[in-house]
Design a binder for these strands. Sequence first.
DNA 1: ACGATACGTAGGACTTTCCCTACGCGTCAA
DNA 2: TTGACGCGTAGGGAAAGTCCTACGTATCGT
Lengths: 117, 117
Amino acid sequence: MTATGTRAAEADRVFAALANSTRREVLRLLRDGGPQPVQALADHFDMRRPSLSEHLKVLREAGLVSEQRNGRQRIYRLEAAPLADVQDWLHPYERFWRERLTGLGALLDRMPDDEPA
Amino acid sequence: MTATGTRAAEADRVFAALANSTRREVLRLLRDGGPQPVQALADHFDMRRPSLSEHLKVLREAGLVSEQRNGRQRIYRLEAAPLADVQDWLHPYERFWRERLTGLGALLDRMPDDEPA
DNA sequence: ACGATACGTAGGACTTTCCCTACGCGTCAA
DNA sequence: TTGACGCGTAGGGAAAGTCCTACGTATCGT
């Protein structure tokens, strides 16, 4: 847990940060290319650099990247901990797509006999 | 893949749908309580029913729930396929939190010697 | 056929997101 | 010290998100 806000608010931030293809692409670049300064990242996008800076801020506040200052550069690094949290969040849903694959769960799912009032 | 839009736009919709605690709670209710009509879901929230209807629309357009009409009710059901897609999206990042746990990857990660220009 | 029930949609108010241009601050090279 | 470089922030405008209160539509019981 970080210092900021409730658990739900933090999940909000992480999912919202991921809900943008530019930001997901930044994560991929950091994953495949290692830690990089802003300019190197910005080269991949058809967007002004200040706009990318704002995307980086969103990623920072979600805990998905960290920055390390190096002279006049800021080296951004992928921080995967929130992604591990996402995976944990997914676990209770796993059986739903596993069942679906076997076909049995899908059938049972179509015939619910334990609905709430 | 659904019929609508590009791959990235679809990921946008799924992550954006998940970036709201009300909608995540709806998914949890459908997961733990099985398919349910709108009113049963709405009882759990401090929110007017039309607002919840809009949340359900967001979930529907992300493919995370489906509806089945039953008389004047609409039974909502969890659809986990987009969540399986999320898990697939996460896979290439897994090594980052596994490495972190061993400590070795973390150290190597702090000493990047293959940075791009 | 009538009213009640279950739900969606329309339209409005407010907030947030996402892009831009302009500018400020620290760092490096000469 | 001066100018260029690397980057963040301020402020603005268009669009989208999130809640609300009406209201419309289909279905059920009587």
